[in-house]
């Protein structure tokens, strides 16, 4: 496997700045960085459909609004179906060459929008669905979502009642719909993100990009550590970078050095309450998931 380049492809798109200053994201927001990189790659012929989530406000008020592409802020549960309908409308009116992108947080994807997301995937609606995943309802005050990892503090999983359920495995669920393209990426690897958006753009049908997106207030982390947190998430195998084509063809984007999960946990106050045993449980769960992923990678070869 080729070593993942950090900035080679990023440099190719670096000059196209489509997201501008003026946004109202918190300092160190992973979702803001993700949007900047995504729009650079997608170009101006892009339409964003954003449900209730941090990005519904990050774009900012006129005239400071940050994204110089059309934004359609829709109801919480409807990003995928609205995007699907916009695509149908564009098709019917003969408008071609437009990237219709649903851009939703984890609450709008894993929870309230999940039924519609599944339906759009099953219909193979021709859209790019992006979930920027900061692992809780950050916009409404850090409530747990089904993307919140085991062990995390949130405002609705407080104290000793920290979250005791696992995070849903979105990529696997969506891959099981046999959609043409499903990929995970994060902001610490701009090249990976750029390449995955490029690949998604080259494919027709339902495409899903799952972006791990650090959130300093929600993760109780330092703003300056957002990129480090995203990198450690990958290096510790908490958030593997890979892609699945047609639900069957797995490609690992990066085989990371094995960094202990502790390094990742230590960057974030939301895991501070965990004892040694609980932390080693997380390490064990991550190792098991990685082994499962490696097995899935090889299923096709076996077949």
């Amino acid at each position: 496997m080729e070593a993942l380049s950090y900035l080679k492809h990023f440099k190719e798109v670096a000059e196209h700045e489509i997201m501008h200053s003026g946004h109202v994201a918190c300092p160190g927001c992973g979702a803001a960085i993700a949007m900047r990189l995504a729009l650079k790659t997608l170009g101006r012929d892009t339409m964003l459909i954003i449900p209730a989530c941090c990005w519904a406000v990050i774009d900012g008020p006129f005239p400071y609004s940050a994204c110089s592409v059309p934004v359609y802020q829709t109801a919480f549960e409807t990003a995928s179906i609205t995007a699907g309908a916009v695509r149908a409308g564009l098709d019917a009116t003969g408008k071609k060459g437009i990237n219709v992108v649903a851009w939703a947080g984890d609450g709008g994807t894993f929870d309230i929008g999940f039924g519609q997301l599944s339906a759009c995937a099953e219909r193979n609606d021709n859209i790019i669905y992006v979930c920027y995943d900061n692992e809780a309802y950050m916009n409404t005050g850090i409530q747990r979502s089904s993307a919140t990892p085991w062990g995390a503090w949130t405002s609705t999983t407080p104290g000793s009642d920290y979250k005791k359920e696992r995070k849903k495995n979105l990529l696997e669920i969506m891959a099981a719909h046999r959609i043409p393209y499903a990929a995970s990426t994060t902001v610490a690897y701009p090249d990976d993100l750029v390449l995955k958006f490029r690949k998604a753009m080259s494919i027709e049908g339902f495409r899903l990009i799952h972006i791990f997106s650090p959130c300093p207030p929600g993760h109780k982390a330092l703003e300056k550590n957002s990129i480090l947190e995203a990198r450690y998430a990958v290096e510790s195998r908490v958030f593997p970078l890979y892609e699945v084509e047609d639900g069957t063809k797995y490609t690992l984007s990066m085989d990371p050095p094995t960094r202990p999960v502790a390094d990742y946990l230590d960057l974030q106050g939301r895991f501070r309450h965990l004892n040694k045993k609980e932390r080693s449980f997380i390490q064990q769960a991550v190792d098991e998931e990685w082994t499962r992923l490696m097995h899935r990678m090889r299923i096709d070869e076996a077949l």
């Binding site: 309802y137 409404t140 005050g141 409530q143 609705t156």
Partner: peptide
């Protein structure tokens, strides 16, 4: 319940 401003503190 489900997170929604301005009622979320009740759930918290």
């Amino acid at each position: 319940g489900y997170p929604i401003t301005p009622s979320s503190e009740i759930a918290h």
